[in-house]
Design a binder for these strands. Structure first.
Lengths: 212, 212
DNA sequence: AATATATTCAATGTATACACTGATTGCACA
DNA sequence: TGTGCAATCAGTGTATACATTGAATATATT
């Protein structure tokens, strides 16, 4: 049972719990979420549960069918690839909008982040490297002041985390170099270059995803 | 009083009503939405109202502050421009993903849509042309099977509709030609060209928005 | 038997009542 | 006057009870 954090509403807790059940496979694709059953299982009333489900629907972890039942969304290779398409343009846009005004301390942080795992580059599929990879992308997304992007990318990154842990992966050597290229473009405050660097970085992964 | 459509829940009706109040200026930026007051005003209980507000928050018509109060979001030139940045990459992606498999009947429809307002191109700021412009974009977005994009673009288009009616506009002659270029690229099933055509089309408007 | 029309039931939608929380007011005391 | 602290209150969060819906089953009619 997950404890209720201070300042966290039941709705938020329930949202996370259900989302994690989906990502872990506890709730399987196509399965219908019956409000009373789930509420009982989680020990809350239907009120916060319904809010949580609605939010899951907005983040596309569940799909609201016509008769307004909520069914767990499918996360097959096709869906993940589509999600990465979205991620590509969104993170590209983040770079584009960030580039003109990004501060030194931020690019410095990103460089040190990558430097800290430089040694792991040679051995592929290293957990520490993967963590740094994700951190690189979430850090950039969090720099965006405009809420909208952060919200969007949050839910995408949580799916990404799952799919990465399933071993969809490119060689660290390649991605490392691409990350550096992105930092360079940002530091040069070159909007177009930064956007393109990020987009092509992510689209290389998409090519892999589509050929499985 | 807006009638309740068959098959429409109170929550949906209330969502639309509040959204329109915001877009029309009935509810002003920075104003706080007090649940009991609004519920009374709209003649519903707080239950569907709360759901509607949550959804408005998700679509960024209102901002959820720390103490979980909902305040009406600002839609200044800056915000609209940022929104258009998002719109540009999303609609660009729509073109990219649609291009490989788009059917003839769809490009034919788009051509006939533009042809039907070809005469209005010379006189700038014609209502019929503006309608066709919006229809062009919503039609394309609706072709995407992946729900996620449609949902996102829906809320963006409603804001766009408002801002267009406030006279933020480029010459019809230019935009007409760009629309044709987009159709050409789609018909040629050229992913990159279609994406780029759409992006640059929208970004030209953004330049205008940023220089006001 | 086949179709049409009630009936039932499970699940969701909505309203209301109650609980909590954080901010503000008013008062006591120095 | 200023500071600490209790009381108050407005507003949101949650639970429960009731209403509605629509799908499935049963019943009737030809």
């Amino acid at each position: 049972m997950s404890q209720r954090q201070a300042g966290e509403s039941l709705e938020e807790r329930v949202y996370r719990e259900i989302r994690d059940m989906i990502l872990v496979g506890d709730l399987k694709a196509g399965q219908k979420l019956v409000q009373e059953d789930l509420a009982a299982k989680l020990g809350v009333s239907r009120t916060p549960l319904r809010s949580a489900i609605a939010k899951l629907g907005r983040d596309n972890f569940v799909t609201m069918s016509s008769r307004s039942e909520a069914v767990v969304s499918e996360f097959g290779p096709q869906q993940i690839a589509d999600l990465f398409e979205l991620r590509a343009v969104l993170e590209g846009l983040v770079c584009r909008l960030l580039a003109p005004t990004i501060e030194r301390k931020h690019t410095i942080f990103l460089r040190s982040l990558m430097a800290s795992v430089e040694d792991q580059v040679e051995k592929d599929d290293d957990p520490a490297y993967r963590e740094a990879d994700i951190e690189f992308h979430t850090y950039l997304s969090d720099l965006m002041p405009e809420q909208r992007f952060g919200q969007l990318l949050d839910s995408i990154h949580s799916v990404m985390r799952m799919s990465l842990s399933q071993g969809i992966l490119r060689s660290s050597k390649e991605t490392y170099a691409e990350h550096i290229a992105i930092i360079d473009a940002l530091e040069a405050r070159d909007q177009d270059a930064a956007e393109q660097a990020m987009i092509s970085h992510i689209r290389k992964t998409i090519v892999l995803l589509r050929n499985r």
